[in-house]
């Protein structure tokens, strides 16, 4: 061992302070997930009242397709949040997190396909397309507190794979935002849901990664 390495080790040892070990991933993700569901539903409910008029319908919520969509959105959010934590922490078997990442994307594909059928319906007119901006506003704003919360959890550790960790963090938050929005949004046309409820999730996640990469490149 060279002298400089010995000096470094001696320096680092003299700076050592007791550290608080990060909680295991399982409890951590649950600490994020459960309050996030409640918070996003509350924020989306409030925003829906302000922007679009509250529209909660028991009949719509009990529809089988709606339940499947919501289950997929929620699973995607959970899987993406878990992946963000797993890939950002050192020492976790990456095979598992990669499988999980693919699983998340697979869930999304299934979700996408559940709404593709309505693209050809006459009600999918250009005018209705433009009504969806309130959905985007509500889901994005509902995702922000949830996103900040997962981001804080991810960056508590020594962060590995920063761009991918950010991608999955945003995916987790925006999926949760979209999940919350759907309870209050009266739109049932699949294509509109695809464009205004689902597509923004991907777009926002990708934009986040691109911004981070640009920032890292400029360093």
């Amino acid at each position: 061992m060279g002298k400089s390495r010995a000096d470094l080790i001696s320096d680092l040892s003299s700076q050592l302070k007791p550290v608080k070990v990060l909680s295991p991933i399982g409890p951590t993700i649950l600490r994020w997930f459960v309050p996030s569901v409640v918070a996003s539903l509350a924020v989306a409910g409030l925003l829906s009242l302000i922007f679009a008029g509250f529209d909660f319908s028991v009949e719509r919520v009990l529809d089988a397709k709606f339940i499947i969509e919501q289950a997929l959105l929620l699973s995607s959010s959970l899987a993406a949040g878990l992946t963000a934590l797993m890939i950002s922490r050192p020492g976790i078997d990456p095979t598992l997190s990669r499988l999980l990442s693919f699983g998340t994307l697979l869930l999304w594909s299934v979700l996408g396909m559940t709404v593709l059928d309505s693209f050809l319906l006459p009600e999918f007119a250009v005018e209705t397309m433009f009504l969806g901006y309130t959905c985007l506003t509500v889901s994005t704003l509902s995702a922000i507190p949830v996103g900040i919360s997962i981001h804080r959890m991810v960056t508590k550790g020594y962060v590995m794979n920063k761009p991918m960790a950010l991608f999955f963090s945003i995916l987790a938050a925006t999926s949760m935002g979209s999940f919350a929005l759907q309870f209050y949004c009266p739109m049932v046309t699949g294509a509109i849901k695809l464009v205004w409820h689902i597509l923004p999730i991907y777009i926002l996640s990708l934009v986040g990664v691109m911004l981070l990469q640009a920032k890292l490149k400029s360093k």
């Binding site: 608080k20 020492g91 550790g157 020594y158």
Partner: peptide
């Protein structure tokens, strides 16, 4: 910097090699 991220339930080498 990453000392707090090690969980003693997991093997140590993957943690070191990942960093």
């Amino acid at each position: 910097k990453a000392l707090h991220t090690y969980n003693s339930e997991y093997p140590v080498e993957p943690w070191v090699y990942a960093i």
